[in-house]
Structures are given as structure tokens and as C-alpha cells.
Amino acid sequence: MEDILRPIYQERASQSETLGVLMVEKRQKARPITDLFDIVLLTIVKDAEQPVFVKHYQYNHQKAALFVVTEQQINEWILLGSNRRLIDWLLNGKVLFDRNEYVSQLRTELREFPFQGRKLKMAIEFAKLIRRYMDGKTFYDNNHYLDAFNHVVHSLHHLARLEVIEQGFHPEVTVWNQVRQIGPEIFKLYDELVNSDEPLPKRLELLFLASEFLIHSRTKIGAAHLLDLLKQKEYWTINDLLTHEEVKNYAVDLPVLIEYLIDKHFVEVLQVETKGQGLYHRYYRVVE
């Protein structure tokens, strides 16, 4: 089918905005990688009216998908981890066109995974982890065990992704296969939660007891991005933090993360009087 698609990607490659074109073929045991399509063509462009443009093709019994994605969208997906297939496409796809070694340099950056980029990605995952974990605990305390289970599974997933990132790798679609090797204690927690014969309330109780230490032991590295930012000023209002450019990618989970860090004595509250009697502003600063 590559021969049939050649005119399509050659036309894209001839356009000055195109930075690179990659082809990803379906691997029989990895169908989620290509969304059940036989071939995915990923075209990265400098700029476009739409950040993502998709076309589907069919030839005989084979299907192909063309993605035209802006450089900005690619960078956002890499940062937020919101399109995990992308990492596989970029690292393992066949390069059909590469303007000024753009794809080659992007692959090098992905493999080297600079620590500063990792620190922000870990902050995003850790904030999501705390949100899910705290919500799960609340549901558990109120005997809503199925809702608690749902949130706990998601919290473990974020914990797994955090572990993978901390070790210098990008989480992939098969993140639990990665974690089996990188963080076996996290994989064991997940396996016991999902596969144990214990009643669900008991499984959740054991999970909360075991995961408390794992999460707490990763607080310093998971919250490093936020704690470093807090050190830049004597104190911060919540609005200062929520509107800060570096925090916007995990701002939705920031209030819960702040409260968790207060509880664990990484952050403290500074009370400042208002005009209302007995009413105080809350400001936040790092515990020195």
C-alpha cells in the first residue's frame, strides 16, 4: 500500500511548511498503535489553520490514515502525554521525508529526555495522581467502592507513568509492560488490586495502606517543579500560581496538590489579616 500512498506524501513533502513525514505500519500484536488502520502517515508542519487535520483512505481491503499536525501540537502532546501513540510513531516510524533533519533532532531529544522537560512532565503526572488518589479515598470513606476503584486504578496509572518518566523514559501505550521492568512494586500493587480474590473493600483498604508510602516517597521529585517555583518568591497567592505560565498545564489539579503538600509539610500557609474580623488571606510558601 506504500506505493499507492506515495503521491500523497510526496505532495505533502513538496510543501514548504512540511517539516517531516513518517509512516507507521500496523504491527499485528500492537493494533492500538495505529487505531486499527494498516498504515498511518504522520506529517508534521510548521504551521496550519488547524492544529490537527485527518484524512482516511481505503485501497482494496487496507485502510490508511493521514495526520497533518503542527509543530506546536506535537510539542504539546509530548509535554502533556495526551497522545501516547505519538511517541511510538516518532521513535519507530519510517522516515519518508525530513527537512533539515527536523525529525532526526526530535528523535534525539525524545531519547535523551532532558531533565527540565522531565521535571514538568513529572509535575503534571504527580498532580493528576494526587487528585485521583484523594478522590478515591473520599469515595472509599463514603462506601462508594466502585467509584473508589475507578479513581484508584487511574491514580496507579499516573504513579506508573511518573516512575517511567523519573527513570528517563517516555510512557508508552503499553505503560504497564514498561513498569513491570522499571517499577515492579507499583506493578505488584496494580496486579493485586485488579486480580485479587479479596472483596473489593478489602482490596482498596490494602491498596491505600501500601500506596501511601510509595506516593509519599515520590513527593519530593513529583512536586519539584512546583516547589522550585514557590522558592522564587517569599509567598504566593493561589491566583498567582494558577495564572503562572509554567503551572498552566496542571493548574486544574493545583488546589488539591497544594493541600496535599501542606499536609505533608512541604508547603506552609501564611495568614494575612483582611478587613473582615477573623478572616484571613491564605498565602503559600515552601517550608524551609
Rank of each mutant, 00 (worst) to 15 (best):
I124C: 00
T70N: 06
S104H: 13
R132D: 15
F126D: 08
V95Y: 07
S82I: 09
L90K: 07
G117P: 08
V103N: 01
G81V: 01
R131W: 14
I124Q: 03
E101K: 15
L90S: 03
L129Q: 05
I130W: 11
V103H: 06
R107M: 10
L90N: 00
K94G: 05
K94F: 01
V95G: 03
R85Y: 08
L120R: 11
F113M: 04
A127R: 04
Q105P: 06
Q116Y: 14
R132C: 13
R131K: 15
L110M: 09
A123V: 12
N83S: 13
R111C: 10
F113K: 00
L79S: 12
R99T: 07
E101W: 04
Q105G: 07
A123K: 12
E109M: 10
I87R: 10
F97Y: 14
E101P: 03
E109K: 14
R85W: 08
W77K: 00
R85K: 15
F97M: 02
K121N: 13
R132T: 11
R132I: 06
T70A: 05
F126V: 04
W89D: 07
F97G: 02
N100L: 09
R84N: 03
L79M: 15
R84T: 09
P114Q: 10
R85D: 11
A123M: 12
I124D: 00
R118F: 01
R85C: 09
K94V: 14
K128G: 15
Q72M: 11
L91W: 05
T108M: 08
G117V: 11
P114D: 05
L120F: 10
R84C: 01
E76S: 13
L129D: 07
R107C: 05
F97D: 10
E71M: 08
S82N: 15
E109I: 08
F113N: 09
W89P: 00
T108N: 07
K128P: 09
K121H: 14
N83A: 14
I87D: 10
P114Y: 08
I124K: 01
